[in-house]
Design a binder for these strands. Structure first.
Lengths: 185, 185, 185, 185
DNA sequence: TATGAATGAGCATTCATTCAT
DNA sequence: AATGAATGAATGCTCATTCAT
């Protein structure tokens, strides 16, 4: 039941937004009563936090796998980009909620999630730095800004990319990698 | 008065979000009463629409100026990137509201704003296509995807870029142009 | 309207208790809606505080009148006892709410009301001390304890005394004064 | 277990009030679940009734002991006052719950408790009447009113008297007896 | 132009209670 | 003897909106 509530909530939050989705909406979809919701979650915000933590923890874990394998930094970066894009196909709604609704977390929870988000970004930045040191990337790059740019390209996809449309997720990931590695000129 | 309401609202919507800002909040900040608000706006949503339209119309107008000048497509693209980044310094709050709160427009208004947003994107895409035709950009590029990527890089900046921090807007625009043109390898 | 809400609330709080009286109960009795209640009061607790403050302020003011007149301390004490008993006839419900529901005030408000209550008690104590000094009362009395005893006798009346029953308020006040002055032996 | 629930409940009801204490609060303090509560008590109100009955039955029993011994009425009255005051030290929380929360009993139970309370009061009144007949007390006294006054003095102590403070319970009982017997003049 | 009073629908949350196991 | 899942009704409170003045 707890997981049912969570999954349905993700879909509703994605479609209507966190503030616009009432507990009533959630439990009605599941055919249970509000009491049931509060048996499993202490508040609406706690549910949102739960969703956030699952999402970012999963992402961090998979990033770790990439980070620790024996590939070149260029290859690692390519894999991370693919990971993020392909995630839209697999966990699109979670991702949208994650990127849009963080504002509704209470201060303490927001801080915790922010820390994890930044850890992901810092890891990305570290791969870029490493790549520069290994002469895989241009030496005049600023790793911090480049990391933000890459996250911009990938995260923005959540706003428009439809994985069941003309372009496949794999394809999009390759196009983006090529753009980031080689530019358009 | 009408403009006062609009400007204060932008600031409040940016800070607290549209749903979380009440009409009461807005009029209290201005020292007037709710009646006054409804004298100038027929609804909260109409105010949001007003904000959206001003923002995107201004952007389209400035895009038009870039588009019609006699520069190379590469130079035009560079100018558009700069335009978007520098806008954060000048109209940051409006931009944040624009990117975050479109969901709260009613269907008809959302459609209208979407049309204008897409017009901006299509214009960007056209510049890329033109550049390919003129051999300024690689011929195998897919202009549509590249346009989304560029918007991702620039629009995502609204989420983290602080124009009064270490990096200036000018500098960020140059770094981003360089990334997009030449890549990181 | 604000005063209507207050008066009706006093009656409901007296009859059913503060916690057991809902805002719905209050507004229904008045034929208005909840919105109206919250137009005049920011919370249920604020309404309770309002009731408390009116009550104790009125009492303190009347105590002051007694305290400042030119009578003997014995006479002053007699008048204070009468004041408290006769108040049951005039403001019984307010008094009951005052004595029973203070626990529902928030910390800050409770402290403020407590301070006023204690002021009343201290004034009573002062009259007793003064009376001892003037040889009106026995010299071995402990004014603090006596003050508590007197308040016990009078305040407890709120729990059983029915001013429209057999014994009149005037009569009860005289019996109580006699008891306190002369005892039962 | 049943008694554990009762004792913890008394403490919680005293601290937070009956309405403000939830079954959840009670069982959490004991480390059991709600089911356990409902195994021993059929309702929250029944638990309150149980507390009330224990308290007043104990008081009546001890009153009976005093009533039946061979002392003068004056001495009996003195002992009853002491009994009530010293009870604050021994069963303070129960007493506070008893005096404050009777309102939450259902009609039938309230009637039963009221009957017992009145029995206590009537017994007190009888001792006074007896004392008058025996010329121990003034003959013009009205026993009913005097009984109420005595109960006011003693019961009100529950609101302020701290048995571990400066004044001991024994001492307070003596001061109160003296006041009631001899007055302050 | 602006106010102030009022509405009514909705919301997150609480809680005593039930009941199959 | 005790649990854990679920209910459903109620509660305090918010808020966009209306409207007579």
């Amino acid at each position: 039941m707890k997981n049912d509530i969570k999954q349905k909530s993700i879909l509703l939050f994605e479609k209507k937004g966190f503030s616009e989705t009432s507990i009533q909406d959630i439990v009605e979809t599941l055919g249970v009563t509000k009491g049931t919701f509060y048996y499993y979650f202490t508040s609406k915000e706690q549910l949102l936090m739960d969703i956030h933590v699952s999402y970012i923890d999963d992402l961090l874990e998979r990033q770790e796998t990439v980070r620790l394998n024996q590939l070149s930094n260029r290859k690692k970066l390519e894999e991370l980009i693919a990971l993020l894009i392909i995630d839209i196909a697999n966990h699109g709604p979670s991702g949208k909620v994650f990127f849009r609704e963080m504002r509704h977390l209470c201060e303490d929870n927001a801080r915790e999630v922010k820390r994890k988000r930044e850890k992901f970004r810092k890891n990305l930045e570290a791969i870029i730095s490493e790549g520069i040191a290994q002469n895989e990337f241009k030496k005049e790059l600023e790793p911090g800004i480049i990391a933000f740019a890459i996250l911009g390209v990938t995260n923005w996809s959540y706003q428009w990319f439809n994985p069941s449309g003309e372009i496949s997720a794999d394809r999009l990931a390759r196009v983006y990698s090529d753009l980031i590695f080689n530019g358009i000129v």
